[in-house]
């Protein structure tokens, strides 16, 4: 076959291609993570990694196992649906600790905490309780609303605020 006599160099070039492809396949089998393709075109273990991230908010269920008394107070008041950490901040460090007393949460300051939700603005739904700057006349909210877990007006302290 004389027509093939002069094709040697072409086969060498093609051989380079095949060689590169084989190396590629070899490396690929070695490099691609084992769980890739387990559920789809991604690393299946990525889901495990994501689920294993640490928690910072323990969730109100955790709080309520110990603080059942406060949960009961809350349940009957206006803040029944406000979860603990919404005001107290992330407490997984306290709630999930072997010794919770080692990480005592800091008590929130009502002077800055309450207005985060209750500051008056036209932009809030009208039926949501809101107060403007004059309302407290500089006093901390808990002066009158003594129990933030069930923030009805404490009648004994009724005085300054309208």
């Amino acid at each position: 076959m004389s027509s093939f006599k002069n094709t040697g160099h072409l086969f060498r070039f093609a051989g380079l291609f095949v060689l590169a492809f084989l190396i590629f396949l070899g490396v690929r089998g070695f490099v691609v993570p084992k769980s890739f393709g387990q559920y789809g075109h991604y690393r299946g273990n990525a889901i495990v990694d994501d689920a294993a991230r640490p928690m910072f908010y323990a969730g109100h269920q955790a709080c309520e196992t110990c603080h059942a008394d406060i949960a009961a107070t809350k349940a009957s008041g206006a803040h029944a649906h406000v979860n603990c950490e919404a005001c107290h901040g992330p407490q997984a460090i306290h709630a999930l600790a072997d010794d919770p007393t080692a990480h005592i949460p800091v008590k929130p300051d009502s002077a800055t905490l309450c207005i985060r939700c209750h500051a008056k603005t036209l932009a809030k739904p009208k039926n949501f309780p809101q107060v403007d700057g004059d309302h407290s006349q500089g006093m901390a909210c808990i002066t009158c609303h003594t129990n933030p877990h069930s923030p009805a007006m404490d009648t004994a302290a009724k005085g300054g605020a309208k």
Binding site: N6, G8, H9, L10, L16
Partner: peptide, 15 residues
């Protein structure tokens, strides 16, 4: 770069 093939005959180049 020759890939070890030195065939530059007229036929090879035509190919």
């Amino acid at each position: 770069m020759t890939l070890g093939n030195y065939n530059i005959s007229h036929e090879a180049l035509e190919l």
